[in-house]
């Protein structure tokens, strides 16, 4: 393309006009993009959930819905809690250093009280809900050396009874522990943080 006979001032003005137009279009796109983010109603829907655990027998699990996600409450037997120590070598993140949990649940049993495990029942891989395979051994259909835990059927991730992920499975981190607190000895509040020094 030849530039002979081009009015340079006009050419520059066209460039400036086009640039400003592009910037304006960019700004105009903002409301459209933001209209797709979670609405005020979706943000407000995260109300806490109170759960009665007085009827939860040892070795059993209860599922409640919180913020549209399943939350599990597992009443662990003493043997189940003891078994966790044996797993430190075969789980990927034994101390939950890379995983998401409130500080008061960042301990060996990943719970406020050792007995009750509270977890968000969503696999950290791609968001399936793992299956509870709480019983140790072949009874869970997981083989004789299974020590109890959770198994995600979608992509084969395995978790122990503290929601800690096994090595060499697709899920990168342990199952999340949601914020929760004890209202009384038999009532839990999911979504409200435990206060310092309480319980």
């Amino acid at each position: 393309m030849s530039n002979d006979g081009v009015n340079r001032t006009r050419r520059q003005l066209i460039g400036v006009t086009a640039g400003l137009g592009a910037i304006g279009t960019g700004f105009a796109a903002v409301p459209f993009v933001l209209s797709m983010t979670p609405s005020a109603r979706a943000r407000a829907a995260g109300a806490p959930v109170e759960v009665d655990i007085s009827k939860l027998a040892e070795g059993q699990m209860l599922t409640v819905e919180w913020r549209g996600k399943p939350v599990w409450i597992v009443s662990r037997t003493p043997e189940m809690i003891d078994s966790l120590k044996n797993l430190d070598a075969i789980v990927a993140d034994p101390d939950s250093a890379k995983s998401i949990q409130p500080d008061y649940a960042k301990n060996a049993s990943r719970a406020i009280k050792d007995k009750y495990l509270v977890l968000v029942g969503i696999c950290t891989h791609l968001g399936c809900s793992p299956l509870a395979k709480l019983q140790a051994g072949a009874a869970s259909g997981m083989g004789d050396d299974w020590l109890g835990g959770f198994f995600c059927p979608c992509h084969g991730s395995k978790f122990d009874l503290a929601g800690r992920v096994y090595k060499n499975v697709p899920a990168p981190t342990n199952l999340d522990v949601p914020p929760y607190s004890y209202v009384s000895d038999t009532r839990l509040m999911i979504g409200v943080d435990q206060k310092e020094g309480a319980a």
């Binding site: 797709m36 983010t37 979670p38 979706a42 913020r67 549209g68």
Partner: peptide, 17 residues
């Protein structure tokens, strides 16, 4: 992923869009 869903999980907002 929150922007695609329009919520923190797949929900009514996701279905509608």
């Amino acid at each position: 992923s929150e922007w695609i869903r329009g919520d923190f999980v797949v929900s009514d907002a996701t279905l509608n869009r």
